[in-house]
Amino acid sequence: MKAILKLVAQRIALGLLLLLAVSVVIFAGTQILPGDVAQSILGQSATPQALENLRRELGLNDPAYIRYFRWLAGIVQGDLGTALSNGQDIATQLGKRLGNTLFLAGVAAIVSVPLAILLGLLAVRYRNRWPDKLISAVTLASISLPEFFIGYLLIYFVAVQLGWFTSVSTVYEGMTIGQRLNAVALPAATLTLVVLAHMMRMTRAAILNVMQSAYIETAELKGISAFDIIRKHAFPNAIAPIVNVVMLNLAYLVVGVVVVEVVFVYPGMGQYLVDHVAKRDVPVVQACGLIFAAVYISLNIIADVVAIISNPRLRHPK
């Protein structure tokens, strides 16, 4: 147990270090971007004096590393700065949006992960027979289509023709959970279709790999049914690769939903980011980038930790 705690602590420490490195990259990246924040705030007609005053006020004249540490110090205290475009506190604005995005991603994940794993198990059970081929064909077709296209297809058929759900996924405060679920149904379905194939294929491949092992033959010779062999004997030994792909896809659900949010006009992080990139609102872009990186890194840490815990050699050392 002690060994595991040590490994987990190591992973977390590494993750934090990585996040710090990412913050440097994000900051450097936004510095390289052309354009002047003061100029974009005041517009083309601003006087040089006004620009100079604003630059001093925003601290834009300080050397980059000082601005970086000032920014970092703010983040560590939970202050993401203020948006240049509207002067509002980024943390409060982001909080709501992040909640919305996580809600959408969560719904998509709750549907897609068990579904993908189940489909993967079924594909192994009926490998090279029609259920396997059907599952592969459908999931691969859905991953091959661009997500905005799937989104519009769903809007056309499910929202317009059938009228089951609304085509615009507006959410606002005071909605019940049922209303919220109704609102995100279509974007969540789109996301599910997008991430399903990857996870399902990996589940299939990882389990098929394990199915070659001698202990699978032992289980077969005990007279255990085919599906129980896959579920009880193969799956536990295939967790590590599966979890890694699942987490990559979950990360994608959080950071890669920009297009889907735009298609469904969903007030999430992605839309917020796109809006502010257009406005050259550097602090917002930086904050969004950092949050996406944090989500990505923490999900990968979770994947590592689950993989470690699923290994009995590490869980129960000699």
């Binding site: 001698a214 202990y215 033959e217 010779l221 030994n237 699923s310 009995p312």
Partner: peptide, 14 residues
């Protein structure tokens, strides 16, 4: 059935 290599014939996860 008793296999030649019990080390491989036992499932490491259980």
């Amino acid at each position: 059935y008793v296999a030649q290599s019990a080390a491989a014939a036992f499932n490491p996860a259980h």
